[in-house]
């Protein structure tokens, strides 16, 4: 949620964090868990920096980096996983790299690199060319819209059955 930015960041890790006050960079390693409001992130290593204006950027790496965050006006959750995650809170822009997956209310996006603007919800998925994982292919799985506004939803099911 947008409100998360105003929340304090709480980071816990096995091997603790080292801080470099001058550049405002702190690096934590070993089962790092970052919590900020509804955002929860797990990774092996997290490097968080904060510039003088208070904009935070975050880079999480590890065998598998996962994150989960609630969406605005309770329209469900967003969660994702990748080998590397870069997040810039000022630009509210996240880049997941390496076996990246983002799931939003049942809709799932899979690719080699996924970029996602948490505000405009615009995303981009790169296959990464033939030699990348899964032959450089990307996938999107969209759940049937079963909200009331979609009268047609019932029809395809019927349609499907009558194939």
């Amino acid at each position: 949620e947008q409100a998360d930015k105003t929340k304090p960041i709480e980071i816990t890790s096995d091997n603790g964090c080292t801080m470099e006050q001058t550049k405002g960079v702190s690096t934590c390693t070993g089962n790092v868990v970052v919590i900020q409001g509804t955002l929860r992130l797990n990774a092996d290593k997290v490097v968080a920096t904060q510039d003088p204006q208070g904009n935070q950027t975050l880079q999480a790496t590890g065998r598998i980096v996962t994150f989960r965050q609630k969406l605005d006006n309770n329209s469900g959750w967003i969660e994702g996983q990748s080998s590397k995650l870069d997040y810039d809170s000022a630009k509210h822009f996240a880049v997941l790299t390496g076996n990246a997956r983002v799931k939003r209310n049942g809709d799932l996006v899979i690719g080699n690199v996924i970029t996602y603007d948490t505000q405009s919800e615009v995303y981009q998925v790169m296959g990464g060319g033939a030699n990348a994982g899964k032959g450089g292919r990307t996938t999107v799985i969209l759940q049937p819209k079963n909200t009331a506004s979609q009268p047609a939803a019932a029809k395809p099911a019927a349609g499907a059955a009558a194939q």
């Binding site: 996983q81 799932l108 998925v125 790169m126 296959g127 292919r137 999107v140 799985i141 969209l142 049937p144």
Partner: peptide, 24 residues
Amino acid sequence: AVPAPPKEPGQTVVHADDLDGEMN
């Protein structure tokens, strides 16, 4: 960590080299 949803009628699956868009 993020499994694919189970197959169900009306579900749309898209495979491509590259994708982009705005959710929903």
